[in-house]
């Protein structure tokens, strides 16, 4: 056994989980799918007194529509995100992104809530949540609050959740007429971390971009909205000149750092290439 010793508690409800966390005085770690927590234990990157397993809590499961908003329970596994017809119809970007998350066996266990809570800047789902302008339903001792995706991801592995809070569900705004979604990433091998990836949610009306949100991942410390590129596109006809302008605008949006595996200039180049492809695809999808 490679992990440090820890206790294991199966939470019966969100209230039970919150209470258990508090009783552990900062020494507890929540366990969802476990596909980031367990390797971190095996590598002895953390040594909690106890794991609090959230997998048996009914309130964290299920996918439902409420007043047009799609509510995706935090314990929804990646494979379910890929296969669920409600997600396909009401949160199409998640449907498109799910097959890119790791490998099939990982997708059978990993959860959407775990991925969003971890906030790995190379992960697909945080960028999708940004592009969809989704909201996070967060439970704590003071009750439940909703946090907009734009305010949720703060830094590498850092979110707006306080220690001990639990992400209960992801809420996706109602689908609008003319909504189109495109997603892609550039990776050396399917399932590897992307060198750069992007999620685009747009509303196209008679060839013009009525509204658009673009979120990149793997280009910085957190998933990033490309606000300048969005401005270059909003209201414009989706032609070659507009796409070129949006690609140029990315320089103002993205600030990757130089890394041994990849200089920042290469990552910027790949981001422009990817955006060009996605916008071209958007033109043919709309």
């Amino acid at each position: 056994m490679k992990s440090p010793a820890f206790d294991y508690i199966r939470a019966r409800s969100v209230a039970h989980a919150l209470e258990t966390y508090r009783s552990l005085d900062g020494e507890g770690v929540y366990l969802a799918g476990g596909h980031s927590v367990v390797p971190s234990l095996t590598l002895r990157l953390q040594a909690p007194a106890a794991l609090i397993d959230l997998s048996g809590i009914d309130a964290l499961t299920g996918i439902s529509l409420d007043d047009g908003w799609l509510r995706i329970g935090a314990m929804t596994r990646h494979a379910e995100v890929a296969a669920d017809p409600m997600i396909r119809d009401h949160a199409h970007l998640f449907h498109l992104a799910a097959p890119h998350v790791a490998h099939p066996a990982i997708r059978n266990r990993g959860t959407i809530g775990g991925s969003l809570s971890l906030a790995d800047p190379a992960s697909e789902f945080p960028a999708v949540a940004l592009a969809l302008r989704a909201e996070m339903e967060v439970a704590g001792h003071d009750g439940v609050r909703r946090v907009k995706a734009d305010d949720f991801f703060l830094d590498i592995y850092e979110t707006a959740m306080d220690p001990g809070e639990i992400l209960q569900a992801i809420l996706v705004p109602p689908v609008r007429a003319g909504d189109v979604a495109v997603f892609d990433e550039l990776a050396r091998r399917r399932g590897d971390y992307a060198m750069v990836g992007a999620a685009v949610q747009a509303m196209v009306d008679a060839g013009r971009v009525a509204d658009i949100s673009i979120a990149f991942f793997s280009v910085g410390n957190k998933p990033t909205r490309a606000g300048a590129a969005e401005s270059a596109l909003r209201g414009a006809r989706l032609d070659d000149a507009t796409i070129a302008a949006a690609q140029s605008a990315l320089d103002a949006d993205l600030d990757p750092s130089d890394e041994p595996q990849m200089p920042a200039s290469v990552r910027r180049h790949l981001a422009r290439v990817l955006l060009g492809r996605l916008l071209g695809h958007l033109g043919t999808t709309a």
Partner: peptide, 26 residues
């Protein structure tokens, strides 16, 4: 033992998973 190599795959509830990333108690 960190979910990268796939040598430990088993079927859990009929679906392939990494046995190294699932605790026996789970």
């Amino acid at each position: 033992e960190m979910g990268a190599c796939g040598a430990c795959l088993v079927l859990l509830g009929g679906k392939p998973v990494h046995a190294c990333l699932v605790l026996a108690v789970q």
